[in-house]
Measured scan of single mutants.
Amino acid sequence: QNEKLANELKSLLDELNVNELATGSLNTYYKRTIKISGQKAMYALKSKDFKKMSEAKYQLQKIYNEIDEA
């Protein structure tokens, strides 16, 4: 289960640069939040902690959705 979550989180991290570029014309909230979420996700992957990875995955998905809707 950890392996599956780690792969999903890696996949979301692969999209980080594209989504970060998409924040160029948006409010600074999005820029700041996506950077923080990305850092948390990288830390969670290194720690291999299921709870941290779950939270990081949720945060990344949430900010990606917010950027898409903005």
Rank of each mutant, 00 (worst) to 15 (best):
7 N>G: 09
33 T>N: 08
19 N>I: 15
54 S>I: 12
63 I>P: 00
24 G>W: 09
24 G>T: 12
26 L>P: 03
28 T>H: 12
49 D>Y: 03
51 K>I: 10
12 L>R: 00
43 Y>R: 14
20 E>A: 13
61 Q>V: 07
17 N>S: 14
68 D>E: 13
37 S>I: 15
13 L>A: 00
34 I>R: 02
66 E>I: 07
14 D>M: 12
4 K>H: 07
58 Y>P: 00
24 G>V: 14
59 Q>I: 10
30 Y>T: 03
12 L>Q: 01
28 T>P: 14
64 Y>Q: 06
67 I>W: 03
10 K>Q: 11
3 E>H: 06
56 A>H: 01
56 A>K: 01
19 N>Q: 12
31 K>Y: 09
15 E>P: 02
11 S>N: 10
45 L>E: 01
23 T>K: 06
53 M>W: 01
8 E>S: 05
62 K>Q: 08
40 K>L: 13
33 T>G: 06
38 G>F: 14
22 A>V: 08
46 K>M: 13
37 S>M: 15
39 Q>G: 04
27 N>H: 12
49 D>A: 02
9 L>E: 00
55 E>F: 07
2 N>R: 13
18 V>I: 11
47 S>E: 06
49 D>Q: 04
7 N>M: 13
52 K>Q: 10
40 K>T: 05
11 S>K: 14
57 K>A: 08
48 K>N: 12
40 K>W: 11
29 Y>Q: 03
13 L>C: 02
56 A>N: 00
53 M>E: 00
2 N>M: 14
51 K>E: 11
8 E>H: 03
66 E>D: 05
40 K>I: 11
69 E>K: 13
17 N>Q: 13
37 S>K: 07
64 Y>N: 03
42 M>V: 09
45 L>D: 01
68 D>S: 15
42 M>F: 09
18 V>F: 12
46 K>I: 12
45 L>S: 01
19 N>C: 15
32 R>F: 10
18 V>Y: 13
62 K>Y: 04
30 Y>C: 08
24 G>A: 14
69 E>L: 13
37 S>N: 09
39 Q>I: 14
30 Y>E: 02
37 S>R: 09
3 E>D: 09
70 A>S: 05
26 L>W: 05
29 Y>V: 03
2 N>L: 15
1 Q>F: 09
4 K>D: 09
13 L>H: 01
37 S>P: 01
10 K>F: 04
26 L>D: 03
47 S>C: 07
64 Y>L: 14
22 A>Q: 09
26 L>F: 04
31 K>G: 06
17 N>I: 13
44 A>K: 02
47 S>F: 06
40 K>D: 05
9 L>K: 00
3 E>A: 08
14 D>P: 00
49 D>K: 03
15 E>D: 09
38 G>D: 01
35 K>P: 01
20 E>Y: 14
61 Q>K: 07
28 T>C: 15
16 L>N: 00
40 K>G: 03
14 D>T: 08
4 K>Y: 06
70 A>E: 04
26 L>N: 04
55 E>D: 08
69 E>H: 12
41 A>H: 01
55 E>G: 03
38 G>H: 10
10 K>D: 02
68 D>Y: 15
35 K>W: 12
36 I>G: 03
59 Q>M: 14
4 K>F: 07
55 E>C: 09
34 I>Y: 02
52 K>S: 08
40 K>M: 13
35 K>Y: 11
59 Q>N: 08
47 S>T: 13
48 K>A: 06
58 Y>C: 10
13 L>N: 01
69 E>R: 14
26 L>I: 04
47 S>N: 06
41 A>R: 00
61 Q>M: 11
25 S>T: 10
30 Y>D: 02
32 R>T: 10
48 K>T: 04
4 K>L: 10
18 V>S: 11
